[in-house]
Design a protein around this nucleic acid. Structure first.
Lengths: 236, 236
DNA sequence: CGCTTAATTGAACATACTCAAAATTTGTGG
DNA sequence: CCACAAATTTTGAGTATGTTCAATTAAGCG
């Protein structure tokens, strides 16, 4: 893993639109950008581990990341995803705890590491920023609770359908406008929906037969969006 | 339900220790206490419904409340609990959405209703308060994610054990130091753990036979705390 | 005391998991 | 670029775990 001390992007010039840092003043951005570093993580590499003590928080300059927790038997449960412009590990900083989950790059990612102190400084002086963080936490909490209901009450088929739609929402489609732009292993898909790898495979295969999706190697092509939404049985 | 315009407790004199309002200045407390009202809710009554538009947020002056969501089939999933001194519905206010869940009194409860505007005023001017809210959201999120892992990966027996321990942590024991001070129906216990009423009954009954707990009507007596903790298989 | 709700029990059933084995894909070093 | 190794995907069969449904008993409440 290459550690670049050279081409660290400045927060002042960062063009990521959906970042929480958008609302910051120039001075505050300068404080934040005074950071420890900026790292590349190859697909599959771990950005931080559950249980470790946080040195700072991460902002995804470009890339896709999964945040997951391990159950007792070593089974993984994906808790949420983060993409370009989003923050990682901020919650542990806020509550001064060790990382609550593990973050893993889902594709080659460029991640900035922001100093804990700088972050807290800005948070304490800038109320707009606090409000942004509050909104972010609120959204995360809402999603987490919805995820809970899904896993506790929906059938496997509904959960798989919902997971595919989630991946589409979060990371979008390829230029053909129908292929999920993020391809995961079957096991990873199962880890989101909370089901075993084999059952995931069988369910995807069924959906393939039913014409909802098409499986081309690791790529998943959504053939019948309406049908998939109907299968997911979404309430929201 | 009686609506008292008379004996509204003042936030200035509120002695609830674990309240997020603790850190407020006198002036800010005065702003907050300038509120719409204060209501009594009998056991089983609903404080607010999922989907409804929030008029304000609630602070439990005294009482116990469950926050739950409905799945598609009308099955309930308890998302979290709140007791004396805690806030309800604040997240909907923060993200300007309708209530995301339903709050129901688990015992006769006295609940203060705080105006949305006053709350937001204080939040915008007082950074300490923002930090308190951020911490509260962080803790809620952490719990929610843990709950997700529990439901997705633990067996029914583990979940029931964990639920009993949760109830003990959250609401404590009676003066005998072994009986759960909050008694719920079997269905409600199942709604927390995400299992059917019948299975909940059978599992509690088994634990009774195994000497872990004792069932006296609705009361649950913890006879073997260590054993129960072992059963719950808690990682945290 | 009657009525409604909650708790309990049994039996049948469904759903998804586990385990094992085979086929396929992917990655890597030569 | 090929060959081999490792990881992933796939399929089948058996099984465990909980759910559902129905019927009964008990408890709470006006």
């Amino acid at each position: 893993m290459k550690k670049t001390g050279l081409d660290i992007p400045s927060c002042l010039e960062c063009t990521n639109k959906n970042s929480v840092f958008c609302c910051l003043t120039k001075e505050d951005k300068e404080i934040i950008t005074d950071r420890k570093g900026s790292n590349f993580f190859k697909k599959g590499q771990v950005i931080f581990y559950e249980g470790n003590h946080p040195h700072g928080l991460f902002c995804i300059h470009k890339g896709k990341v999964k945040i997951s927790k391990l159950g007792e038997e070593g089974k993984e449960q994906v808790v949420r995803f983060a993409g370009t412009g989003e923050l990682l590990g901020y919650r542990s900083i806020l509550s001064n705890e060790s990382y609550n989950a593990t973050a893993t790059a889902l594709e080659d990612s460029h991640v900035c590491l922001i100093s804990k102190d700088k972050f807290m400084d800005v948070l304490n002086k800038n109320n707009n920023f606090s409000m942004e963080i509050i909104k972010m936490l609120s959204a995360d909490l809402r999603n987490s609770e919805q995820h809970l209901i899904n896993i506790s009450q929906k059938t496997v088929r509904e959960r798989v359908a919902e997971t595919l739609l989630l991946l589409k929402e979060k990371f979008g489609l390829e230029s053909d406008n129908k292929t999920l732009s993020l391809s995961l292993t079957r096991r990873e898909i199962g880890d989101i929906a909370g089901i075993s790898t084999e059952t995931t495979i069988r369910t995807l295969s069924d959906m393939n037969k039913d014409g909802l999706i098409e499986l081309k190697g690791k790529s998943i092509i959504i053939k019948d969006m309406k049908g998939l939404i109907a299968e997911a049985n979404i309430l929201d």
